[in-house]
């Protein structure tokens, strides 16, 4: 493996600015009534080379939609995604296909993300077939190599996905993503469909591969413990916006946004001795088609004031490298 890591780790790999995705949902028989679901509503984030950025949030927060836009699989309504100096959102189909060599993805459900009619060899060799002019034999040798990298073996080349367990399938998916030696891999809930003991294997594997291939990872998940385990920095999303972003340890040591705080306290404890009488957040997640005015979190926020109902707070640096979108951040 040629490891061309000439850039220092602080180099910007991807710059996301003002990213928005609004879906128009037509209702009613005559399709008159149109509601605008703001799945992603203004996301700014910088991804540095070699880091792992975790994106956490609950369902409907727009984390997966953001992921698809970073991949260039979905056109944003507004905003730009600049990857190595080029704007993905301005690329045509052909340029995007070319760019796929550098940005890859690992999906959540290893049972759904592998074509059931392809063998392992075809699945992992497919990106090489598309992007290189390698011979069948060269491709097979690379596939065998990739299988070893992800902890499978070459006897499994001719098998079909259904012959594998969930963890093994996820390894196949990872090998497929690695085949073109990408710079950035977007992991969209890569472990949440797996058994506990397998989750740990996959998390460890991702960390190992990141070191070995100098990968940059965006790790999208709803499970904070897994995100904490793998990420260098963590962004917390709520209803289409990043509400807080900072280094991992900083986030766990002192969250600034009340939502982050609530999220951290909602996670079941590590040990029965840590049980508390914490009263969980009340209410449900608001409907993204009809988000609350002002700060989207004000309907559930224990500290909400008048201004929170009226004005949406912007993402500001309240401490060094610690940004939060809150009028009354939790200083402790």
């Amino acid at each position: 493996m040629t490891n061309t890591s000439e850039a220092p780790s602080a180099d910007v790999l991807m710059e996301v600015k003002g990213l928005k995705k609004h879906f128009q949902v037509k209702k009613g028989y005559f399709k008159k009534e149109i509601s605008n679901v703001k799945a992603v509503d203004g996301v700014d984030v910088t991804i540095y080379e070699g880091e792992t950025l975790g994106i956490v949030g609950e369902s409907g927060c727009g984390k997966s939609t953001t992921g698809e836009m970073l991949l260039g699989l979905m056109k944003p309504t507004e905003g730009s995604v600049t990857f190595m100096g080029k704007d993905l959102t301005a690329m045509n189909k052909k340029e995007l296909r070319e760019m796929r060599k550098d940005i890859q993805v690992i999906f959540q459900d290893p049972f759904a993300s592998l074509n059931p009619r392809m063998t392992v060899e075809e699945l992992i060799g497919e990106p090489l077939k598309i992007h290189t002019s390698k011979t069948k034999k060269e491709i097979r040798n690379e596939v065998v190599e990739l299988l070893e990298v992800v902890g499978l073996n070459q006897e499994q080349l001719k098998r079909y996905p259904h012959e594998f367990s969930g963890g093994q399938r996820q390894r196949i998916g990872i090998a497929r993503a690695l085949a073109l030696k990408p710079k950035l891999i977007i992991c969209d809930e890569p472990v949440s469909a797996l058994d506990v003991s397998i989750q740990a294997q996959i998390l460890n594997l991702l960390k190992k591969l990141q070191r070995e291939f100098n990968l940059t990872l965006v790790f999208i998940a709803h499970g904070l413990p897994a995100v904490r385990n793998i990420s260098d920095r963590i962004a917390v999303m709520y209803l289409g916006k990043i509400v807080e972003i900072t280094d991992r340890d900083q986030l766990f040591a002192g969250a600034l946004h009340p939502y982050t705080e609530a999220l951290l306290k909602s996670i079941p404890v590590d040990h029965p001795s840590l049980r508390s009488n914490y009263q969980p957040l009340e209410g449900d997640l608001p409907n993204p088609a009809n988000p609350p005015s002002g700060c989207a979190f004000h309907t559930r926020c224990p500290f909400a004031q008048e201004i929170c109902r009226e004005k949406a707070p912007s993402l500001e640096e309240h401490r060094e490298n610690h940004h939060a979108a809150c009028h009354y951040p939790l200083y402790k």
């Binding site: 506990v196 003991s197 989750q199 294997q201 413990p225 904490r228």
Partner: peptide, 24 residues
């Protein structure tokens, strides 16, 4: 033991997870 070690924790230092090899 393996199951407990393979769960990522919310407290304490972040360590390599103690995965159980193989699958069920």
């Amino acid at each position: 033991k393996g199951l407990l070690a393979s769960v990522p924790k919310m407290t304490g230092p972040v360590e390599e997870l103690g995965a159980i090899k193989g699958s069920v």
